[in-house]
Design a protein around this nucleic acid. Structure first.
Lengths: 215, 215
DNA sequence: AGCAGATTGGATTAGGTAATCCAATCTGCT
DNA sequence: AGCAGATTGGATTACCTAATCCAATCTGCT
């Protein structure tokens, strides 16, 4: 709505952009660990090593900062998901991706769940415009998965009657729910069960000649 | 640890129990809509129609109130899940349960997600003892699903090589993730995709004679 | 050099929140 | 009736948080 006064629209020096990024990164880290509501602007100020005025120089208010964190986490996740694992266009890639997700949650000590999922659950109903940004992030995420599945169909690894749209949504749902449960249960059992069951479903659509070892 | 001073341990009159319940119900409603951090004790006081001292008479602090809300939501959900739908011990029951879950989220206007899941994501890392309570709630929940699947195996509807433990965890993960995504996307697409894909996986273990219409 | 605008520091304020306290009232029980 | 303990009302406090303000400094550009 209001774009003329919003600090986001102003000129940013190289130095200014660096400071802004430092604030966003510090806020993202704190919000991942303590939630959005559990992260105070003084805490962000100290963690980023800036003064109060700098936060409000680059962001209209705390909600705007939270939106910036959402955008940052979306970028980070999508970059990791696509760069690290390439396109999820084979059973080997799906299995490798599954292992990375599970191992990442273990390495974190079952703390924090999904950076985007936790934020989403906390703020999507309360911060204006945040819900749409989160929805877009999830859509891109499932889209990346869907692209891989579609590629598998195109290459004849999966039958044409497989529904990549439904399967990719199911995969993301299992991932998000699995991470949420991992946080509470301090175990990746539900995460593994969810991801493996979706992969198993996808395997049902494999063309007959592809029968790699089930593990 | 400290049980001698905790207000929970004291004698409760009929009237006292009613007041305590009123506080918990009001807090549960507010926390469902605005989150735990987004719910202030003054707001609970007003919604419950009590005075400040009453809240702290029945609960040691806000964390204790939050724990009571978790216990309350766990009870409510498990009662609904088992009483309303009985044991999930047939494909018809699974389908009916799926429809109820999806319709419930639609009726709520995609607001709030799962009362237990949202709370879990927000507080399981921050409130002492809350994580364990949430984990127990989820374990009971998946246990109820597992019981139904086991019953299907016992009756010969599912083959013996189906793994009820894994499938029930997968189902709960898909449910939680689906509700989280529904909140952001304002759509039950991911929820339906997740639940349907797990049900489809379960169907793969059906004994041959059972082939009801796929929908 | 010198200007305009970006950036920074840090004090300050207004408002809300968790939690406490004490006195008053009610309740169950004998 | 009358007591002990449970319950209630509501003022109060100490603290924290979001946000503002103004003056000082830096930066890119001509």
């Amino acid at each position: 709505m209001v774009t003329s006064v919003a600090p986001d629209a102003q000129q940013l020096t190289t130095k200014g952009r660096a400071t802004r990024d430092r604030i966003v990164r510090a806020a993202a880290d704190l919000m991942f660990r303590h939630g959005a509501a559990g992260t105070s602007t003084p805490a962000v100020r100290d963690a980023a090593g800036v003064s109060s005025s700098q936060i409000y120089h680059y962001f209209a208010d705390k909600d705007a900062l939270t939106r910036a964190v959402i955008a940052h986490q979306t970028e980070t996740i999508l970059a990791n998901q696509t760069a690290l694992l390439g396109r999820l266009d084979s059973f080997e890639a799906l299995k490798a991706w599954r292992d990375v997700v599970v191992q990442a949650e273990r390495d974190l000590g079952y703390v924090g769940g999904c950076p985007l999922g936790s934020l989403s659950s906390e703020v999507s109903d309360h911060i204006p415009d945040a819900r749409q940004a989160l929805a877009d992030g999830f859509t891109q995420w499932s889209g990346a998965i869907r692209g891989g599945l579609q590629h598998m169909i195109d290459r004849g690894v999966l039958r044409a009657d497989a529904d990549p749209e439904r399967l990719s949504l199911a995969m993301l749902a299992a991932l998000q729910g699995g991470l949420l449960l991992a946080q509470a249960q301090r175990s990746t059992a539900a995460l593994e069960a969810g991801l493996d069951t979706i992969v198993e479903s996808i395997r049902c659509y494999a063309t007959e000649d592809v029968t790699d070892d089930p593990q």
